[in-house]
Design a protein around this nucleic acid. Structure first.
Lengths: 248, 248
DNA sequence: CGCAACGTTGAATACCATCAAATCCTGTGG
DNA sequence: CCACAGGATTTGATGGTATTCAACGTTGCG
């Protein structure tokens, strides 16, 4: 498992690159110190690496520091459903930490850097820092929100609307996390198909249509949103107000 | 809002009906006392009542004591997606409590009794009872798990598999919560359609097929699972091991 | 240079949506 | 008791959306 994993050098949390990003709220000094001691190390993985595998009882959970990843589930016959994407600031593996065993897998979409925490020390965090515990729950609730939206998209939108939604959504998620809007979204059409519940062929035709309308770009390592407003409107989607969010 | 809502008589939490049910773990005495003081009252609603509305900033959140409900989202043009169902022991409104505003609505599928908590006192729970805070997060993580499964179903299963999955899933959720397996699942075909991303007509044809195969029953106020094993197999679904779960 | 991953396109077909209308059931009021 | 309304279910007919099968182009890499 974890192909391409490397142990990293421990950087003090006070220098955490996420703190500078506008999407995130900052810590109180005593929280920062606690998190620094809580942190066990860093993990670097390459694109395509499996960060966490369904069925595993990993000893760790992580906060994403850099890079893109995705969470997915498989049916026995190989059909794959991507349930959500992960970007910097997201917790991965919390579900496995709480419930014992991962119910989904996590794979890196790009090279990723992750902050490593020990599973068994999570409860200490709940005992010592209620405010951080509250933040963990906040992050879990936000994930739930995103899944609700993804379900709405897959269940009730047409193929074109789904694609418009997904790219709007991913662009919005990347904003303020240190990627910059200029960057492409490093997904293939197979990822899109497995996210939206479409076949690869139909996904391609749908992509072609939106490219022809100059709403999106495709190629050179991923997707690009060219007309954010028009795309969001086509998707019947509203990003809502984004408040600075907590992370651990 | 909340058509049919009634204030209820406060029952001490030590007599909470959920404590007797096998699906739930029990409280430590000091936790029980804290929750009893934390509880603000009870709410009774009729079938069809809106418990919480998307966009609202309710002052409360709830634990379901009895009855069925469902969570859903709407598109501007009226398309509806049911994202999950709620059964006794589930928290409703936690997302709105944490993030300020509800991003989905909750409606009663049957008469429901809910235990009422004050939104602004949630943080007190995190400060005073880390173990209960941990349980809240556990419940949120479990919701996330269920949403992942629902997404897998809607995105990657055929209509027949989806229906088989949904009824297996709902039957499994009801087990051990005080409904009894004997009871029917109080949903209409419109609910099924809006859960599985299907049209009402096609939902009906799919229901007819499974009824003809005697895997399920339909009518007299809802659906019934006649052949749980065969249905789960048809759905390519495995309930997994169910451990006693916490509730608040 | 061969292979693998990704993207693209055409053709045939299947699944599911839509439109339309009929039936059944239950609760309500006359 | 019956008429009636409304919700829920059922069925047929038709068409569109999306899947499947198949093939080919491109790029990058060992």
């Amino acid at each position: 498992m974890s192909t391409g994993a490397k142990a990293g050098i421990q950087v003090p949390c006070s220098f955490c690159p996420l703190r500078k990003q506008p999407a995130f709220r900052d810590f109180a000094p005593e929280e920062l110190e606690f998190v620094h001691r809580f942190k066990k190390g860093e993990l670097r993985v390459e694109r395509g690496a499996t960060v966490l595998a369904e069925g595993a009882a990993s000893a760790h959970f992580y906060t994403v520091l850099a890079g893109w990843g995705f969470r997915y589930k498989l049916l026995a016959d190989g059909r794959r459903q991507i349930v959500n994407y992960v970007v910097p600031g997201d917790l991965v593996g919390l579900q496995g930490t709480l419930m014992g065993e991962m119910q989904h897998s996590v794979e890196a979409l790009s090279a990723m850097t992750l902050c490593v925490f020990d599973r068994e020390r999570l409860f200490r965090l709940y005992e010592k820092h209620p405010s951080l515990a509250y933040d963990v729950t906040w992050i879990a609730a936000r994930e739930e929100c995103m899944l609700d939206e993804n379900l709405l998209a897959v269940g009730r939108r047409s193929a074109t609307e789904r694609l418009a939604y997904l790219l709007s959504f991913l662009r919005d998620r990347a904003r303020g996390t240190g990627f910059g809007v200029e960057g492409r979204i490093p997904i293939t059409q197979q990822h899109v198909a497995d996210t939206l519940g479409l076949s690869l062929v139909h996904t391609n035709r749908t992509v072609r249509k939106l490219v022809a309308r100059k709403l999106i770009g495709w190629g050179e390592g991923g997707a690009a949103v060219l007309e954010p407003e028009a795309l969001a409107e086509l998707a019947h989607w509203d990003a809502g107000t984004r408040i600075p969010r907590p992370f651990i």
